[in-house]
Amino acid sequence: MSNPTVEVRIPTILRPYTKNEKLVSADGASLSEVITSLNTNYPGLGERLLENGELRRFINIYINDEDVRFMGSLSATLKAGDSITILPAVAGGCM
């Protein structure tokens, strides 16, 4: 069985890696596999998301709007059609 395909929203700061595409596709049954798939298609992108095998401190990734750090981080599982959003961590909230 092939891996599910998901859509990934890329923040402005990482678009130089995706030829300025905002929305790209990737394959993988887990977030880790999706990041590998992204890095294959857009060399260098994966390294901007990870540091020592973990998500970078200032990178937040959401699967269908939920923060992956509370869903198993890199081992969070995915199904076809899931939407992934990558955002830099900013002081953006209610303050």
């Binding site: 402005t12 955002l87 830099p88 961590a89 900013v90």
Partner: peptide
């Protein structure tokens, strides 16, 4: 709002 100059300028 997410227009950082670089990722290291992020904030937690």
């Amino acid at each position: 709002v997410y227009g950082l100059r670089n990722l290291d300028a992020g904030f937690v």
